[in-house]
């Protein structure tokens, strides 16, 4: 039954009184209501100092701890601006949120290093930052992706990129493959959850038959994923790596998308993944077909 987002998921939004926080909380609530008319998935929000108020039917709390106590929330979607976001993530972890999805783009790397170190002592899972979020089609979405482009099904998507994930879900739908869960891990150098963490979850998930992995230039996460696939993943894997034509030393939008010192090129990543049997499409237009081919 998919990963991370389940029928037991209850979500609050940190930064709900901000423009994006409110807009996307509304969109997420609409999607969840279409999928599960009887369940209450999006249960409120947090903005320090605005506790006790209400915004478009969402109760607002001063702290994540208070929100959890009053609503039973176990998941937080974070839209807090970059200077305060690390603090917000750690507050959520401290308050016992099981899943924290950080959408915010532009958090300083040093802040994320501290967050990662502090969260090593916590059982909470952080997705992101700088990511589109998570969707289990037909159940709920926690993030900024459009719900309707996804179809329920049995393919897991793991991606560093937002719009490229939408593209992938769309292409999968066109070749008749729905998704169990699609997860954006984000385009920052330091992420809460890695390809490997999610490969492990999808491998164990009885409702996922194949995994589509979307990477990009910068770092070595895709190579590490390839190593993991070699020894731990039995399900078919397909993928695409963005940035073949990117010049070295230039940051391509995402803070993490940069070829430095000749390392982190698309060619290295593609080679590593193909070497472990993954079907990697040369064209971004071929992601759906590649998944189909991998499934055999």
């Amino acid at each position: 039954m998919s990963i991370l987002v389940t029928p037991h998921t209850k979500v609050i939004c940190q930064g709900i009184t901000g423009r994006s926080g409110l807009f996307h909380s509304q969109k997420c609530r609409e999607y969840a209501q279409e999928c599960q008319p009887d369940a209450d998935v999006f249960v409120g929000g947090v903005t320090p100092g605005k506790g006790g108020t209400e915004i478009d039917g969402f109760p607002v709390f001063n702290s994540v701890g208070e929100a959890r106590e009053k609503t039973g929330a176990n998941t937080s979607m974070v839209f807090v601006p970059p200077p305060f976001c690390a603090d917000a993530i750690l507050e959520a972890a401290d308050a016992g949120m099981e899943l924290i999805v950080a959408i915010t783009e532009g958090i300083p790397v040093m802040d994320m290093i501290r967050v990662r170190a502090a969260m090593a002592r916590s059982s909470a899972r952080l997705i992101g930052p700088n990511c589109p979020g998570i969707i289990t089609p037909g159940v709920a979405k926690i993030g900024i992706m459009p719900g309707y482009i996804h179809t329920p099904g049995r393919i897991g998507i793991i991606s560093k990129s937002g719009t490229l994930t939408y593209e992938a879900a769309w292409q999968l739908g066109r070749v008749g493959l729905g998704q169990s869960t699609a997860v954006g891990i984000g385009g920052d150098p330091i992420a809460g959850t890695s390809f490997i963490d999610l490969l492990e979850l999808f491998e164990k998930d009885p409702d996922t038959d194949g995994i589509l992995l979307i990477g990009e230039i910068g770092g070595t996460a895709e190579q590490e994923a390839a190593e993991y696939i070699r020894s731990h993943v039995t399900k078919p894997v397909a993928g695409f790596i963005a940035g073949r034509t990117a010049p070295p030393g230039k940051r391509m939008g995402h803070a993490g998308a940069i070829i430095s010192g000749g390392g982190g090129t698309a060619a290295e990543k593609i080679e590593a993944l193909r070497a472990v049997g993954a079907v990697i499409s040369d064209s971004p237009a071929g992601m759906g077909e590649a998944m189909k081919e991998a499934l055999g």
């Binding site: 990009e216 990117a246 998308a257």
Partner: peptide
């Protein structure tokens, strides 16, 4: 293009079809 990943992929796609991207 909208989105960094899609923008990078669009450059790749142009190159794959024999063109050269002028920008990201």
């Amino acid at each position: 293009v909208n989105g960094a990943g899609l923008a990078m992929s669009t450059m790749d796609l142009i190159k794959l079809h024999g063109g050269e991207p002028a920008n990201f």
